[in-house]
């Protein structure tokens, strides 16, 4: 059996791929080996503080002793794990203290005698938080503003009371929403329809982590519709499908207007993410002249030659003939506007 890829370019691909990877690995390895020693010496922190010897020392963040004297790895989330994250880099003077996010929490730290239960921290971010979402988010937005978050205040997530911590795990080195494989599961916590569509046979490689929700959407808001990563649907699709952009000498109007007229990017049972199988999709727009309103015939033909009623639904459907359906740059005269060549 011939495998085209193996036959044609496998050797050169494999060599090129290994060259890329090996170069990257070696470069990284060399840099890290040379500099790791410098880092390693600084990596080992002070030993655990003895609680009997006041004052307690900070463990991870600046001024965290007032928190870490009580909170440790037994807590959920594991508070010390913030040290593994970019928030835990004290050399970066912009990084927060515990109270930058959770508030001074005086009554939490020093429980008033007249209350039974210790009051909660001023700002809590967990599932049972009673802190208003806006206030929770402000703790993040104080530092994380501008850039790709410029449109946050207008974003659907903001107006639907989605908190930053509904998606982000701040105390985790591996924030699932920033991991290519895990991200979709975070989004699917709310976007159930898209979760189901991902199980359809025609889909983007989202399960494999090769296309992620944030490749197409900016969850922090954008100037365009649907919180898209680019200003409109087509420009978002052209990031990976620039061959459809044209303009072409023969152009197909809906292709130029909006890819989502015909495609559902989240998954379908129809090939090529088509919302509806041809001919039904094509018949949604085209006048019933010539063969356009042909009633399809899908039954087995028993080895006979196909006919037009079969060709409009079997195999590639209408695209069996109208091959260059996204547009053609063939200027040769003749053969009409059927995108056939």
């Amino acid at each position: 059996m011939l495998d085209v890829a193996d036959k044609k370019t496998f050797r050169s691909h494999a060599m090129k791929r290994n060259m890329y990877l090996s170069t990257l690995l070696l470069l990284s390895f060399a840099l890290m080996s040379g500099l790791a020693g410098v880092a390693r010496g600084a990596d080992v922190p002070a030993a655990l503080p003895d609680p009997s010897k006041p004052p307690p020392k900070d463990l991870v963040l600046r001024d965290d002793a007032k928190c870490t004297r009580c909170h440790d790895e037994a807590d959920n989330p594991r508070v010390l794990a913030i040290g593994k994250t970019r928030h835990g880099v004290q050399a970066d003077k912009r990084t927060p203290t515990c109270t930058s996010c959770h508030g001074d929490s005086d009554s939490h730290i020093n429980k008033p005698e007249n209350v039974k239960e210790r009051p909660k921290a001023d700002r809590q971010f967990g599932k049972d938080s009673t802190t208003p979402v806006g206030e929770r988010n402000q703790a993040c937005l104080t530092c994380h503003q501008g850039g790709k978050r410029i449109h946050w205040s207008m974003a659907a997530h903001a107006t639907n009371d989605v908190s930053c911590t509904a998606c982000h795990q701040v105390h985790s080195r591996r924030d699932p929403v920033r991991d290519k494989v895990a991200q979709s599961e975070v989004c699917f916590a709310c976007h159930k329809e898209q979760r189901a569509q991902l199980s359809r046979p025609s889909r983007h490689p989202i399960k494999e982590g090769k296309v992620v929700c944030s490749d197409c959407h900016n969850p922090h808001g954008g100037a365009g519709e649907k919180m898209l990563a680019r200003d409109n649907v087509n420009d978002t699709c052209y990031q990976c499908h620039a061959e459809k952009r044209g303009p072409f000498v023969r152009s197909h109007q809906p292709v130029q207007e909006d890819c989502s007229i015909c495609h559902n990017p989240h998954g379908t049972t129809n090939p090529n993410l088509l919302k509806v199988r041809p001919p039904f999709l094509c018949q949604s727009c085209h006048e019933p002249t010539t063969h356009h309103a042909t009633a399809p015939v899908g039954s087995a033909v028993g080895g006979g030659n196909p006919s037009t009623p079969q060709a409009v639904i079997m195999a590639r459907g209408c695209v069996n003939c109208h091959t260059n359906i996204h547009g053609s740059n063939n200027p040769a005269d003749g053969a009409g506007r059927g995108f056939r060549r």
Binding site: L21, L24, L25, S28, F29, L31, M32, L35, A36, V38, A39, R40, A42, D43, P45, V89, Q90, A91, D92, K180, V181, G209
Partner: peptide, 19 residues
């Protein structure tokens, strides 16, 4: 692979998946 210099806040990371 992660290395972090605590004094300078410098990170080196090399991550490979499904190699």
């Amino acid at each position: 692979f992660v290395r972090r210099n605590e004094e300078t806040g410098t990170w080196f990371t090399l991550s490979g998946r499904n190699l």
